[in-house]
């Protein structure tokens, strides 16, 4: 299991962060994914979960999470919305980053899985539990929104 965590956790974190846009939420999503696998996988059968199966569990974790609007009175947060983009100094990058963060989680998941991580539309559909047409529609709407928000 330790090997599995070392091999997969960073990749899963990257996907989770792309969807959730929150470091703490992404950490939680990956942790819950791996704990879920650890508890439920039939290790005794001598098999190991595949990367694609782990990815699907992780994506489901991300889509099913309710984003926390964390508060500070004894209840800590790790990041304000804007700090994620502190390195993105050009205004257009900031606009783009904010526009992406404002997409729906389904739209971010579809865009990230397809464009950032190279999954085909059919694979995205499998991961998101949608039909390929729905994924295509999420992506198309996301691109329209992004273009509209970053166009001068």
């Amino acid at each position: 299991m330790e090997d599995l965590v070392r091999a997969e956790s960073r990749r899963l974190y990257s996907i989770a962060f792309s969807i959730l846009q929150d470091a703490s939420e992404a950490e939680d999503a990956v942790q819950e994914t791996l704990i879920s696998v650890w508890r439920r996988w039939p290790w005794a059968a001598g098999t190991r979960p595949t990367s694609s199966w782990l990815t699907r569990v992780c994506v489901n974790q991300c889509l099913n999470r309710r984003r926390s609007r964390l508060r500070q009175m004894r209840l800590a947060t790790t990041a304000a919305d804007h700090e994620r983009w502190q390195d993105a100094s050009p205004t257009t990058d900031l606009d783009l980053a904010r526009a992406y963060a404002q997409l729906s989680k389904q739209q971010r998941a579809a865009v990230a899985l397809h464009y950032f991580y190279g999954y085909t539309l059919d694979e995205c559909a499998e991961l998101l539990g949608n039909r390929p047409g729905t994924v295509r529609s999420h992506i198309a709407r996301a691109l329209v929104t992004l273009r509209r928000r970053v166009s001068p």
């Binding site: 990257s14 792309s18 470091a23 994620r84 980053a97 865009v111 464009y115």
Partner: peptide, 17 residues
């Protein structure tokens, strides 16, 4: 271009602590 910029922005941020 939009996706390339976005990929760079998002994946640059997605490194665990």
């Amino acid at each position: 271009e939009l996706i390339d910029s976005l990929r760079e922005l998002v994946t640059h941020q997605s490194v665990p602590p």
